[in-house]
Design a protein around this nucleic acid. Structure first.
Length: 107
DNA sequence: GGTGTGACGCAGG
DNA sequence: CCCTGCGCCACAC
């Protein structure tokens, strides 16, 4: 059934968007963590790679800058924009990377 | 259909 | 800091 594929993709996109919206300002989470949370809530596993792809095409109201790589690195090409927003929120940073030891949010 | 490429993650060198 | 390899998923060629 080809319809199921689209349904699953939509579910994953909604889950990721919803979870990202829950990340508090000044805090951050990782693609991997989000993938795990989305996998628990959804009907099928979501990978970190998928989270990144979905987020790259997310809506304007989604705080994508609060989702970083597992080592706190910011999205390639958008470091400036992300860093500026994060700093404005008071998110702990370190050498251009998010200090996850302090900012990490796990839901 | 195969192949390359990403806003990924992890183990190694 | 760099890089390679493997597993992972979706997409453009």
């Amino acid at each position: 059934m080809l319809g199921r594929v689209d349904a699953d993709a939509t579910e994953a996109a909604d889950l990721v968007a919803a979870l990202t919206t829950r990340v508090p300002p000044g805090r951050a989470t990782t693609y991997g963590d989000l993938a795990r949370l989305a996998s628990d809530l959804g009907s099928r596993p979501v990978t970190a790679r998928l989270v990144g792809r979905l987020l790259s095409a997310s809506a304007d109201d989604v705080p994508w800058w609060r989702v970083v790589a597992h080592d706190g690195r910011l999205p390639p090409g958008l470091e400036r924009s992300a860093a500026q927003r994060l700093v404005a929120e008071g998110c702990p940073m370190r050498s251009g990377r998010v200090d996850l030891r302090q900012a990490r949010w796990r839901g």
